[in-house]
């Protein structure tokens, strides 16, 4: 078991003929991901890395039974691509693209809800269930199968923590990046619920950052979880009003501060690491 993504996923890459799309398609294939189709409008009919390329998502679904989409489409075209995927019946859309306008993101999120699709991102590294499949761009060499579920807002920080965990002997069930933008498809709670129900996941690592109140909300859910949660929140020393790289990582009008998140998480019974490398140390204090 894993959550959202396992070895049965049939992946279509949108924007497969672009530089990023091509590079990561190769890496996904090398990892064992079943990339069954690519879509680039007006470039259909060819094959890339033995993967057939179509002009439309509808064809990719009909011909190859694609059920997960991975977007490497430029920001100004990304909304259209995501809507096309969901309209074609795709139930998991992974939007890697960054700098998608937030109004576009709201329309994507809205459509995903109406189609009961899972939208991962925008501005995410994607999702990986180690040993089974990965959709997106995570450097898979640091990931190992195991009992830790991870949900994060940011990419490289996740790799850092995953590498620490793997080195300490803690493999991962599924690792998902929600995305660094203000409006994204998944919430921490969406993922915490899935990990709570997943028999393979024994503990959850939540990697948050300043800005918004997603972590405070997550804390409300953590109170009632049976599985332990370990959290790290980046941005303790970020000044208010400045975007720390991610559109979502901004302390506005005193909201979304480090301290309010840490307080909420601790009150809910989560263990909170002060620095990334302390996450495995905190795991060691638990009986898994």
């Amino acid at each position: 078991m894993a959550v959202i993504l396992d070895e049965t996923a049939r992946v279509v890459v949108q924007g497969i003929t672009g530089q990023q799309g091509l590079f990561h398609t190769k890496r996904m294939l090398a990892y064992g991901t079943k990339v069954v189709a690519g879509v680039t409008p007006s470039k259909g009919g060819q094959a890339i890395e033995n993967v057939p390329v179509y002009n439309t998502l509808a064809e990719a679904v009909q011909e190859q039974g694609a059920n997960v989409s991975c977007l490497f489409v430029p920001a100004r075209l990304a909304k259209d691509a995501a809507l096309e995927a969901m309209d074609a019946g795709i139930k998991v859309v992974v939007a890697i693209t960054e700098h998608i306008p937030v109004h576009d993101a709201m329309e994507m999120v809205d459509f995903a809800r109406r189609r009961e699709a899972v939208l991962i991102g925008p501005n995410t590294f994607g999702i990986i269930s180690p040993g089974k499949s990965k959709v997106g761009i995570p450097p898979d060499q640091y990931f190992k199968p195991g009992p830790i579920g991870i949900v994060a807002r940011s990419g490289t920080l996740t790799y850092e923590i995953v590498a620490n965990l793997t080195e300490a002997g803690y493999g991962q069930s599924t690792v998902v990046g929600m995305g660094g933008d203000r409006v994204v498809g998944l919430s921490f709670i969406d993922m915490l619920q899935r990990f709570e129900e997943d028999p393979e996941s024994k503990a959850v690592v939540l990697i948050g950052e300043i800005g918004g109140n997603a972590e405070e909300e997550a804390a409300e859910y953590i109170k009632d979880m049976s599985k332990p949660v370990i959290a790290y929140i980046a941005g303790k020393n970020a000044p208010p009003g400045k975007r720390m790289g991610h559109a979502g990582a901004i302390i506005e009008r005193g909201r979304g501060t480090f301290q309010s998140k840490v307080n909420a998480l601790k009150a809910a019974g989560a263990l909170v690491a002060e620095l990334p490398f302390q996450v495995p140390e905190l795991l060691r204090t638990l009986k898994l």
Binding site: S154, T156, I207, G245, A249
Partner: peptide, 11 residues
């Protein structure tokens, strides 16, 4: 990466 840069400042 934005997250790890924040994490670096924190460290």
């Amino acid at each position: 990466g934005a997250g790890i840069t924040m994490g670096t400042i924190d460290a």
